[in-house]
Design a protein around this nucleic acid. Structure first.
Lengths: 230, 230
DNA sequence: AAGAAGCAGATTGTCGACAATCTGACAAGA
DNA sequence: TCTTGTCAGATTGTCGACAATCTGCTTCTT
């Protein structure tokens, strides 16, 4: 028998597909923060019964991008300036930890993957595909968390990522302006390839701060306007 | 009208109660790691239909203490030495962050609550109630995370706590011996009341290491024996 | 005896219908 | 006018039944 490692077969349950669909709709901002999800309407649109839809929604509630009030409904979470602040300050800590853990595990495969993801960001930037730009940038950023060989860290970061992606999408949607065309990740990638771990950690921290300030200013704008939820 | 702030009414859905029941069963070790949860059997025992039970299980899957394989079943997660290692190393980082954030927010209410929880641990210790001892110790430990005024941190810590509590319960169950009767939290509490933040952070880190070593030795024992799951 | 094919039982995934609860409008009374 | 009671419509929560899938055994073939 040939030595092949097959990847797991895709989940063939409706539930899994619904989760993916809903998550995408939320993270891309198609479903607005605070908006209520009507079970009957959605299940009819998707041609699915309410049972798998409800199970899917339960998952997304635990994932932190939906919130549920018994007998009232399930809503897309509201984004406050404090939420963003909280997420980012924790993210800094996780990044530092991830870099420390990843550092000794870096090898050629790591560097190759780093370049591959960096290239994906640059491609999305050239294509002016802002949604994809957000996705790829987060994937580039996530490599250190995947490589750190700590399942709990990875899981935690993925939960954070959901929100960050949502925040970025809203930001981009609100501003309706192209995200910076130049490449802001060049230094980050270079430092991850280098020999000064502290410098890489420091840069990650500062690098995050830049994006963060922009996001915060957007979030503060948001709070001056009425929202659809509580 | 009198100025009273009422606390939210308890969730009255079956789903919420099922979640609580199942979580408790898992965290106290009544449901063993790797064990399969038969939906029909459980729903009959609880006198509930499978719909709310399945939704509850979906929540616990996302919470990280159950794992689901389509068309095969839902199982209690298996505890490996690496899982414990991962959880603890991340916990150290979170603790340091939590202490830093909490530090400036400490007030009389904080100190009172700290004492209250410390007292609860001592009471459970006197009662030789090991399960409660685990619960209260984790609650004492959790105060800095609750006080840090960062919802994402708190959420993350609560997810970690579930696993830690499960690990501790298994540990205690396997050893069948009383946990240390003396009070190991005295220094911790004192430092949190003091003025040297760095010292508090350092102690939290070392304090965790102690429990950790014991847990790891247990986990390594576990892996030499057959388990019920994959 | 070893392996493949097929069947039966058990279990999970999904469906449609019913029950419980909430929301908002409207009417009655102070 | 303001509050309170009532009710209809809409929506969520729950149920029982059916469909899809898996597992292990049996049977058949070589």
């Amino acid at each position: 028998m040939a030595k092949l490692d097959f990847s797991p077969i895709a989940d063939t349950t409706r539930r899994a597909e619904i989760v993916a669909l809903l998550r995408r709709a939320i993270l891309t901002g198609q479903l607005e923060p605070g908006q209520k999800l009507n079970e009957l309407r959605i299940s009819e649109q998707m041609r699915v019964s309410r049972a798998p839809l409800r199970e899917a929604m339960r998952e997304l509630v635990q994932e932190g991008i939906l919130t549920s009030i018994p007998y009232a409904g399930t809503f897309v979470i509201n984004v406050t300036a404090k939420d963003i602040d909280d997420a980012y300050s924790l993210n800094k800590v996780l990044d530092e930890f991830a870099i420390e853990r990843t550092w000794k595990l870096r090898d050629q495969r790591f560097f190759d993957e780093l370049d591959r993801r960096h290239e994906a960001v640059k491609q999305a930037t050239r294509d002016r595909d802002t949604t994809r730009q957000i996705e790829t940038a987060l994937q580039l950023h996530g490599l250190i968390h995947e490589w750190a060989d700590n399942s709990v860290l990875l899981e935690t970061w993925q939960r954070l990522t959901s929100r960050l992606q949502m925040y970025f999408a809203l930001h981009q949607q609100a501003r309706k302006e192209a995200v910076p065309a130049e490449d802001v990740h060049e230094t980050y990638v270079a430092l991850l390839k280098g020999n000064d771990m502290r410098a890489a950690q420091r840069h990650a921290r500062e690098h995050i701060d830049l994006d963060f300030e922009e996001l915060l200013s957007y979030a503060r704008d948001l709070e001056k306007r009425p929202s659809k939820g509580g």
